[in-house]
Computed example of a mutant assay.
Amino acid sequence: MKLSQIEFTHQGKPCGSFRIRSIEEKIGRKLPEDYKKFIKTTGGGTLSLKNTTLAGISLSDGDELEINVEQIFGNGHSEDDDNDLADYASFLAEEWEIPTKVLLIGNPGAGMHESYALNYDLEGFPPHSVLYLDNDEPGQFTLVAESFETFLQKLKPTPDYDPDTAGQGQLSEKMQQDITGAREGTLSPQLKESIAATHIADYEEIVRRAAYNLALTEGGFGVWGSNPAWLHPRDVVYWAAQQVQSSSSLESFNWPFWEDTPWDGNEYQFPTLIRSSFLLEGDFAGVACNEAMLRIWWKRRMEAGVLTETSDGFKLKDDYIATILETLR
């Protein structure tokens, strides 16, 4: 597949050799020429239905693996772009405990459970070959392609891809459902109370618009880090919740992901605010998210100085949220 034929739904920024050298310095690795060319030409990003299916991969037990490639990391546009190989992918590699003998380069859209990596020092696989990792089974690697170029050539359209309507607002059934949920779905009691506490007449409309923007992406109501559309829902919901009950820490707002994390009594957490909202009849969950994405949001807002610790917990600044509201109106 020629690089010019690769389609993205959220694309990074093509770059030059200087940026490539900067990425290599940050990750401490020299990238293979075919991967460098990919980043320089396309910028990487979230793939469209035209080139997202990876089939015919043989597992060690003899079964065949058919899986998607949702995102290939490359060069981002800004600090809020989750496509940066040097920054974002490195963060995920640490969070997901990816072995340092490989380089995390992409994911199938299943959150922290699966990923793709370039081999550098792992024995038994060719240098710079592309490997599939099952992160739920540490050390389980499967050879996908002997080079990054071959990896790209193996990408095929999904069964839902229609070349006659591609690029013309083609919506999957799941995306249509997510859009309806964003516009009309029920909101949790906690989110309703938080919205009312802002005393901003159109705040529910703003929250729904942020959710709608997320629903328009191929990731849908899943915060997997493949695009920045998930940042604004997080902003507007957190700011509304702090009007009722501030969070004393990241863990307090995120909810106890693991059984050994105690609950501090905060009723205005991510699950009660977002995961239990935008529901249609028969739905069990709204916006899903993995822990790494939540930590990234918190870290970025803290570093930007817009999320600050007060005597009454951590709060997003009013002047910052005003700019977000202006963007969403």
Rank of each mutant, 00 (worst) to 15 (best):
F284D: 15
Y120H: 09
I296L: 10
V306I: 15
N83F: 02
V69M: 08
L103M: 10
I296T: 09
A86E: 05
E33I: 11
Q153I: 07
A89N: 04
S226Y: 07
W297E: 04
L280D: 05
G139C: 05
E70F: 08
A240M: 10
S90A: 15
I57D: 05
E33H: 13
F18E: 14
F18C: 06
A145N: 02
F91I: 03
Y35A: 06
G109E: 12
S311V: 10
T142H: 06
L152N: 00
E146D: 14
G220M: 08
H199G: 02
W258C: 06
S226T: 12
E137I: 15
T150I: 13
G222L: 07
A285T: 11
L3Q: 04
T327N: 07
C289Y: 07
I206K: 05
N135Q: 12
F125V: 11
S22V: 03
W258V: 06
P256D: 09
R19I: 06
E123G: 04
D80G: 09
A196S: 14
A166Q: 10
L155V: 03
S17P: 00
K30A: 11
W297H: 14
L103T: 10
D312A: 13
L307G: 02
G74V: 01
I20T: 02
T198H: 10
E326S: 11
K154M: 15
L49I: 02
L307D: 05
Q269G: 08
F18T: 14
M175T: 15
S58G: 02
S60D: 14
N290S: 02
L59H: 04
T42Y: 03
T165A: 10
T198V: 12
A166V: 09
D264A: 08
R301W: 05
F314L: 12
N68Q: 13
E309S: 14
T100W: 04
R300L: 12
H128S: 13
K40E: 13
D134L: 03
Q190F: 08
Y161R: 00
F91A: 03
D160Q: 13
V244W: 01
G74S: 08
L122Y: 06
P189A: 10
Y320F: 15
Y161C: 06
H113S: 13
Q245E: 14
T198I: 11
V236H: 04
T42K: 00
T186K: 12
S172E: 08
